[in-house]
Design a protein around this nucleic acid. Structure first.
Length: 764
DNA sequence: CTAACGGCAGTTTTT
DNA sequence: CTGCCGTTAG
């Protein structure tokens, strides 16, 4: 039976019992798949008491001892374990970061392991920063470790960058240690430029990234409706050569290059390898861990198979299985949850596959999980406006409230309603450097100065719509390549400088800028501490003091330059140029200029985020919005059984974000694409004793209510006969309309119908 | 050479 | 439902 049919069947039948579990139903149809379940007898249980060790710690480092006393026995067991290979299966909210940092401190202060002999690997910059900060906070009265000692504390990618730079065989791959890092978008620009300048035929160009992944993982060239292979392979070959020639690496290259180098020659074996969020490792990251190991050194990994929600990104779901079978691994657990109240946690754990008492609540019973039915997202948004005002009145700060969504598209309507009704709110998503024109321009200026062969950065400096002087496009590229044909230049930057002064004499200031960029490296070297890049590059001229954004741009750029200053002087070890390059790499890796620890932007307001983005966070009140079947689990054409399981874990993650109040909503009439009527059938695996079901409003009344609401807030709703304008079809006249659809006659384009809430029509 | 139609895929996001 | 490719009909 196909997944699609199963979906159909589950939707159309009244489910036999409340405890019916579609996953087990599905399992009985399909061949069994490897599971992540760790058998209970595989766990090493803690001792009754660790006070003997704590007494020893007390003698050496009283501050650490008092912190260790606060841990529970499972946590102490993991911290004190001297097993060579240890896997810690940490349940949600069980204090895994605490264990990890205490373990590092214990190893360092008590076991005498130098921090520089530990590789502490995380997936996100946020996690890396948190661990470093917690460690530094232990040095209140003594000199903290310098950044050189914490060199191998960081994300997989930043540690890989560090290791690549230090590796003696890098030249053999055609790179030099001052390579520059392209972020995802820079890589995309780079490939698109190659396609244009080499006149390659590549289909689905806007889905290039997806296609490259497919090719890398499954060697698949045909995508979508393609019949014949295109020039994708050729593009990859050209891009590889181009990257080597110009000393560029993308994020993926960082990991694969270091793996290649370490296989050639192992240069560094840390005494301890410590990995956070181990379940998110992909194959290459596992390889990196292996390449950093020999049979002497220690390995400690913390992870939670139940929170593995990134399989689609390549994290291997067999990872825990492998280590369970490997008897040389000791496995411990952290079963005690400190975050969520009892009944909510019980409800959440019904979604797990291992349903023995793997997850234990330590808190009070608390309130029941609420499953609420709304007519649609609009009604729900207004319900939240009321509800949040009440909750806030009773003393819950806005920041302790979060609304979770499965997809990003669901968020917009809530944001606009909250803004309209005065609920402070914030959509959590990373603001891209690219969207802040001035900072993006600065980044490219510095990149072109420090990596004079980085053609894309150079191009972006001079073709920036706000601050450049040239127009980007095929014309420019071909003019440039015609100009350089048969000539030799020391660097791309020099070539471009000649090109400018030959063909664009009138842009004297930009030719000047080019000259100064060529001198940037020398400037940074010779002026040592006393750099003033703002002046040196005459940025004030380019920021155009007459422009409307001038004040903001100058402030942003000065801030960014301060950050760079701070970073470079803090991490200075004897080579200014090198440290500036490191700083810029960090900017690429983190996607912003705030690269110094300790600086976190304070958020205020209710948070609107996807479940994925909520991982690792916790809130007092959590609302999961629009949990209809078809959304949770998100239905796809090509869905596997693993996909279903991951979607279930995703729901688990959502439910365990809440400390005290959790509400799941579903819509009678969902506007989301693909959504089915009715609540997620995953919810059927939660016994009714743990749930409070609320039918907010009978469908008909609320339908009228919501449309009235819409009309009162937005008085431009359609009436028959209204003349309207459409961006594509031009002017037309409304032929009919109801609360869902608008039909409009556009003359020569004929009649078109739109969803009334979203119709791109303007009244005229 | 262009318009119309059929078929397929789409989410989530960190570095 | 949208965007894109490939085919086919005019």
């Amino acid at each position: 039976m196909s997944l699609k049919h199963l979906h159909r069947k589950l939707r159309n039948t009244d489910l036999p019992s409340e405890e019916f579990d579609p996953i087990s139903a599905f399992e009985s149809f399909e061949t069994p798949v490897i599971s992540n379940i760790i058998p209970p007898d595989r766990y090493t249980e803690p001792k009754e008491d660790y006070s003997d060790i704590i007494t020893k710690v007390e003698a050496k480092k009283p501050q650490l001892a008092s912190a260790l006393k606060k841990l529970n026995l499972y946590q102490q067991q993991a911290v004190f374990s001297e097993d060579q290979k240890l896997l810690l299966s940490a349940m949600v909210g069980s204090g895994k970061t605490t264990v990890l940092t205490h373990k590092v401190l214990y190893l360092h202060f008590i076991k005498g392991i130098p921090l520089s002999q530990m590789a502490v690997l995380t997936f996100t910059n946020k996690a890396a920063r948190e661990i470093k900060e917690r460690i530094l906070s232990f040095y209140e009265n003594s000199t903290p470790p310098n950044s050189d000692e914490l060199r191998y504390f960081g994300t997989f990618h930043s540690v890989a960058r560090q290791l690549i730079k230090e590796h003696p065989k890098l030249q053999e791959l055609g790179f030099t240690p001052d390579f520059s890092i392209m972020d995802q978008e820079a890589k995309e620009d780079f490939l698109q430029r190659l396609i244009v300048s080499h006149e390659l035929d590549v289909k689905y160009r806007n889905k290039l990234d997806k296609r490259l992944k497919l090719y890398r993982n499954e060697k698949q060239i045909i995508y979508g409706n393609m019949k014949n292979p295109d020039d994708l392979v050729q593009l990859l070959n050209i891009s590889r050569k181009e990257k080597q020639a110009n000393n560029l690496m993308d994020f993926d290259d960082l990991i694969s290059v270091i793996n290649w180098l370490l296989k050639l020659k192992k240069t560094f074996i840390p005494e301890w390898i410590i990995v956070d969020e181990f379940q998110d490792c992909n194959q290459e990251q596992i390889e990196l861990i292996q390449n950093l190991s020999d049979d002497q050194n220690h390995f400690f990994a913390v992870g939670d198979p139940n929170q593995s929600i990134y399989a689609w990104r390549g994290s291997t779901n067999v990872i825990f299985q492998n280590y369970i079978e490997d008897q040389s691994f000791v496995i411990m657990r952290l079963p005690l949850n400190y975050r969520t109240s009892g009944q909510l946690l019980n409800a959440a754990s019904c979604l797990l596959q291992q349903n023995n008492d793997a997850l234990q609540a330590t808190r009070d019973q608390g309130k029941k999980l609420i499953i609420r039915n709304h007519f649609d997202d609009h009604q729900e948004a207004y319900y939240y406006v009321q509800k949040f005002k009440e909750v806030h009145q009773k003393g819950t700060p806005w920041t302790e409230i979060a609304v979770l969504f499965r997809t990003r598209q669901q968020i917009a309507i809530f944001e606009s309603v909250f803004q309209l009704e005065g609920i402070p709110c914030e959509v959590v998503s990373k603001t891209k450097l690219r969207e802040q024109a001035a900072l993006f321009w600065l980044q490219n200026i510095l990149l072109s100065g420090l990596h004079p062969n980085d053609m894309d950065s150079i191009l972006r400096v001079f073709t920036s719509t706000d601050f450049g002087c040239l127009k980007a496009g095929k014309k420019l590229l071909s003019a440039y390549s015609k100009f350089t044909e048969g000539k030799e230049f020391a660097s791309k930057l020099e070539a471009f400088s000649c090109f400018l002064s030959e063909k664009y004499k009138k842009h004297a200031e930009y030719i000047d800028l080019c000259q100064r960029l060529m001198g940037l490296a020398d400037y940074l070297q010779s002026r040592k501490r006393d750099v003033n890049l703002y002046q040196y590059l005459s940025l004030d001229f380019f920021l155009k003091p007459t422009s409307i954004n001038y004040q903001d741009d100058v402030a942003d750029i000065k801030n960014a330059l301060n950050e760079l200053d701070h970073y470079t002087s803090k991490n200075y070890f004897g080579d200014w140029l090198e440290i500036y390059r490191a700083a810029l790499s960090q900017v690429s890796l983190e996607g912003h200029f705030q690269i110094n620890s300790g600086i976190q932007t304070e958020t205020k307001g209710v948070r609107l985020l996807t479940i994925h983005a909520a991982k690792g966070l916790e809130f007092d009140h959590v609302y999961l919005s629009g949990a209809n079947s078809g959304i949770i689990p998100l239905e796809r054409k090509k869905a596997g059984y693993d996909h279903l399981k991951e979607e279930k874990r995703l729901l688990f993650v959502a439910l365990t974000r809440a400390k005290n109040h959790m509400e799941i909503s579903w819509h009678t009439k969902s506007s989301a694409w693909n959504a089915q009527d009715g609540p997620s059938y995953f919810l059927n695996s939660i016994p009714s004793a743990l749930v409070e079901k609320v039918d907010t409003a009978p469908a008909k009344n609320s339908a009228i209510e919501t449309t009235q609401k819409v009309e009162s807030n937005d008085d431009s709703k359609w009436k028959v006969g209204t003349k309207v304008k459409h961006p594509k079809y031009g002017t037309g006249e409304i032929k009919s309309c109801n609360e869902q659809d608008v039909v409009c006659d556009f003359g020569k384009f004929g009649e078109k119908s739109f969803a009334s809430a979203w119709a791109p029509l303007v009244k005229i």
